[in-house]
């Protein structure tokens, strides 16, 4: 369970101060699929960063499994990011002068996965985003869409319980985009990972358990899909 409690985020100081988030309250159950939708500049990325513990709210708190990220020790946060979290950045942030393999290896190096299982996991992740043939190609030589898929491979390689994806299909054609979405949903189904996706795709949004509409730093509405939910193999967040 992830709770966002009255989160505000102010950028800049005094005259140039800008309130990007104006008191957000959310509750996301474990294993849910969530779509965050809203216009450009509405604060979606800011919210995602704060939920992942990458950025600090100006006020309010994010509580993961009963523990506030703000009160966690740096070591605990590092552990949370390395073991529980997968993050797809809107701007990918792949390392251009490293190969696809090396890019995907980073999270496994960080959480100290053994070398042998590391190789298997990397191959599997690259396979799933259909980049296995580019394994030893430097990331800077990839196309925009390929970079995005590489970023996704990196985010899923450590098998996260919480996957935050900031417009993961923004640069993809509808066919490839569809495949990636299927991939993300299958992770949710197979592992019970909680999935939060920022998207402008209403078709995709309608497939999620929850749709959160953000406008000018505020939650305008939360639509919860009432369906006969199969009991999912839920994975609780371990902290």
């Amino acid at each position: 369970m992830i709770e966002v409690r009255d989160v505000r985020k102010v950028y800049g100081k005094k005259d140039s101060a800008f309130e990007a988030l104006k008191g957000i309250d959310l509750q996301i159950p474990d294993g849910a699929t969530v779509a965050v939708i809203g216009k450009s500049g509405s604060g979606k990325s800011t919210l995602m960063h704060i939920m992942g513990g990458l950025d600090h709210p100006t006020s309010g708190e994010v509580v993961v499994n009963g523990q506030s990220l703000g009160t966690m020790k740096r070591k605990q946060i590092d552990h949370f990011r390395a073991h529980e979290l997968g993050f797809v950045f809107q701007a990918f942030f792949v390392e251009g002068n490293q190969t696809c393999y090396q890019n995907v290896a980073l999270p496994l190096e960080i959480n100290e996965t053994g070398l042998r299982s590391r190789k298997k996991l990397i191959d599997a992740a690259l396979e799933r985003v259909e980049l296995l043939d580019k394994k030893h190609v430097k990331a800077r030589n990839l196309s925009g869409g390929q970079k995005q898929r590489l970023a996704i491979a990196r985010a899923i390689v450590n098998n996260p319980t919480l996957l935050l994806a900031d417009e993961p299909t923004g640069n993809l054609d509808s066919m490839t985009g569809e495949k990636i979405i299927e991939l993300l949903f299958s992770l949710n189904k197979e592992n019970g990972s909680t999935l939060v996706i920022v998207t402008h795709d209403h078709e995709l949004a309608s497939r999620c358990d929850m749709q959160i509409v953000v406008k000018d730093g505020q939650v305008m509405g939360v639509r919860v899909r009432q369906v006969d939910r199969k009991p999912l193999p839920r994975r609780g967040l371990r902290i």
């Binding site: 070591k75 590092d78 390395a82 993050f87 999270p107």
Partner: peptide
């Protein structure tokens, strides 16, 4: 940027 990425992914 690389350092930012490493830290964001949980590097101590």
């Amino acid at each position: 940027r690389e350092i930012g990425l490493m830290k964001a992914l949980g590097t101590s």
